[in-house]
């Protein structure tokens, strides 16, 4: 809109200078509040030991060092399960869970948005209702019983299978397909004799890449943040977040390494979001819920 104001031949919108200033000041203050905690932990992760325990704590670092990161890896490699194993676990769960979620959700989203069959609206209403509860908490107890009856407790499947049935990605993809794929395109493919699966795969899916990406990122982030779970007991199967939590109970000696670990865990989702931000926002454009 800022641009709009300056363009000729267009209506000039009323924007008071006072309002602009007030908004910018508020943004600045809120922004500082948001950034401060993260800034401080990043700072701490580069502080040498003597600076970490300066009193009162400082908001800058005099002689930055990578020691905390080295310490972190030393501490990690001392644990009896090698650190690489935790990374492998987290990556495997994240990729496996995301892949299944993408495949099953896209198929369902396509049918729910572009096919007509009795029960379709009912299915979708169930999915919308599921967004209204945190399924892991509300159904958690019975979910545990189901997982144990499937005999997958203490295997990767116990974390991967529930991820395949999560609904937010499906919801976003269905809404996106509805507003971005015209029926005419699909109709002409069908008239050409393409099967539904083929139409789905080579016509519909390429048209909804932003929604793919959004689903992948949501799913991946959720799984990447997996911490301690009641489904996993073996140390060899635990996740990165779990391991870091266990070996760093904020002891004095490990304060620096603990900050380093927080930075490492933070950095992955942030980088992923930076890369994909515009596509995610594009997907969110159709996220609205009709009543």
């Amino acid at each position: 809109m800022g641009r709009l104001r300056t363009r000729r031949h267009q209506v000039v919108l009323n924007r008071s200078a006072g309002g602009d200033t007030a908004i910018n000041v508020m943004l600045l203050l809120l922004g500082i509040l948001m950034v401060l905690p993260m800034y401080y932990v990043i700072l701490n992760s580069f502080k040498p030991l003597d600076e970490l325990f300066v009193y009162p704590p400082k908001f800058y670092v005099v002689s930055p060092t990578m020691d905390n990161y080295k310490d972190l890896f030393t501490i990690m490699s001392e644990s009896w399960v090698p650190f690489s194993r935790y990374i492998f676990n987290t990556v495997l769960i994240s990729i496996g869970g995301t892949f299944g979620n993408l495949v099953f959700s896209s198929l369902a989203a396509y049918a729910l948005s572009k096919m007509v069959f009795p029960g379709r609206d009912f299915f979708f209403q169930l999915i919308v209702k599921s967004l209204m509860i945190s399924a892991g908490t509300v159904g958690g107890i019975i979910q545990f019983i189901i997982i144990s009856r499937l005999h997958v407790i203490d295997t990767y499947w116990a974390l991967i299978l529930p991820a395949w049935g999560t609904t937010l990605g499906l919801y976003l993809m269905k809404q996106f397909m509805e507003s971005n794929i015209t029926d005419a395109v699909l109709e002409s493919a069908r008239l050409d004799g393409a099967s539904e699966l083929r139409t789905f795969w080579s016509i519909a899916m390429p048209m909804v890449k932003p929604a793919w990406l959004t689903l992948i990122i949501y799913s991946f982030q959720g799984l990447w943040n997996t911490g301690d779970s009641t489904y996993i007991q073996s140390e060899q199967l635990k996740t990165l977040r779990c391991a870091i939590g266990q070996s760093l109970n904020a002891g004095v000696v490990r304060a620096g390494a603990s900050a380093a670990s927080t930075v490492i865990i933070m950095i992955v989702p942030i980088v992923v979001f930076v890369i994909s931000q515009s596509k995610i926002i594009e997907t969110m454009g159709s996220s609205g819920m009709k009543d």
């Binding site: 198929l107 069959f117 399924a135 509300v138």
Partner: peptide, 29 residues
Amino acid sequence: MKQNWIGYVFVLPFMVLFAAFTIIPVIAS
């Protein structure tokens, strides 16, 4: 339903998982 059976095939895999980990747990509770 018969005419559009393919729709159910598309939805089925997801619905099985969704039922197992969300719908059934909530109703069963």
